[in-house]
């Protein structure tokens, strides 16, 4: 039981971090970022290149992932999303753009890093063992703690800095924020960059444990979508809750339902449908109140 809970917490911290980036982008620009999974994979590969190929310390790889993805996010917002949002008749056009970017990133990843499964050597050796009731490798614990620290850092950033306040205002009401003198274009760009940065960070964190490969982008996006549907789109607390709930459910499901084959996600989806029938906007779904 303790094992299941610990696994769930560890998975949930990763998931929450992915969902945070997605929900941030969604709340600021009303864009569903299909390319989020690909950004995550890209971040993983950057860390892999820096750590495993150039032999630099892990933290350098993590920072490199964050910086590269943030720059990429900022450029994507400025040169792709902004003009399309301005010109198109329907909101949905940004979805095509996002899907196009997802394909584009897939192609870039394929060309730059190849299609092989990659991983970096363990950053910490050893296994934490509490009386055979709870077994967890130290590197997983470290990654889990790092992820939680990052989540806390992100919340602090949104709550207590000027940029965070501006972004929250933007998410509540774009027009009103603009009238109050918030530089809407600038903060949209920062927000997108921040979302991409988070995706890159998770990629960098997870490459040490599960490794990374080209095909992980799509399924990761799907999981992130599920999380923000559970929690409510565009709500920070919702994304965190959704991440931890999905992590827990996966952990419990893999143990309890193992006897019936690989039906965990089927069960999660079925319960999600029932849940959404009662609460279509998710747990905390209202725009950033």
């Amino acid at each position: 039981m303790e094992q299941i809970l610990a696994n769930g917490l560890y998975l949930g911290a990763q998931y929450a971090l992915i969902a945070l980036g997605l929900t941030l982008i969604f709340s600021l620009m009303n864009v569903l970022n299909f390319a989020h999974g690909q950004m995550y994979v890209f971040g993983g590969f950057v860390t892999y290149t820096v750590v495993a190929q150039w032999g630099l310390p892990f933290i350098v790889g993590l920072v490199a992932s964050a910086v590269i993805l943030a720059v990429m996010g900022a450029l994507i917002e400025k040169f792709l999303f902004r003009p399309v949002i301005r010109k198109s008749k329907r909101d949905e056009s940004t979805m095509l753009l996002a899907a196009g970017i997802a394909f584009f990133l897939d192609a870039v990843i394929l060309l730059l890093f190849g299609e092989k499964q990659r991983g970096v050597p363990k950053i910490v050796d050893g296994v934490f063992n509490w009386d055979m009731r709870l077994i967890m490798p130290y590197d997983r614990i470290l990654i889990g703690v790092l992820a939680i620290a990052l989540i806390v850092g992100f919340i602090a950033l949104m709550q207590y800095t000027k940029a965070g306040r501006a972004m929250r205002a933007l998410a509540q009401d774009r027009m009103a924020a603009q009238l109050m003198g918030v530089d809407v274009d600038r903060y949209s760009m920062i927000g997108f960059a921040l979302g991409a940065l988070l995706a890159g960070l998770v990629g960098g964190l997870l490459v040490t444990i599960t490794g990374i490969n080209l095909g992980m982008g799509g399924p990761t996006s799907v999981k992130a979508f599920m999380m923000i549907m559970i929690g409510g789109a565009g709500v920070i607390s919702g994304a965190i809750a959704g991440g931890f709930i999905l992590g827990m459910m996966e952990s419990i499901g893999l143990t309890v339902l193992a006897a019936y084959g690989d039906i965990t996600y089927l069960a999660i989806f079925a319960s999600l449908m029932v849940f959404l029938a009662f609460r279509p906007q998710g747990l905390m779904g209202k725009p950033w109140g």
Binding site: F26, L32, V222, F225, M229, P280
Partner: peptide
């Protein structure tokens, strides 16, 4: 977006 997301999840 909610509908879009859940249909995508449905595919998976």
């Amino acid at each position: 977006v909610y509908f879009a997301m859940i249909t995508l999840v449905l595919t998976e």
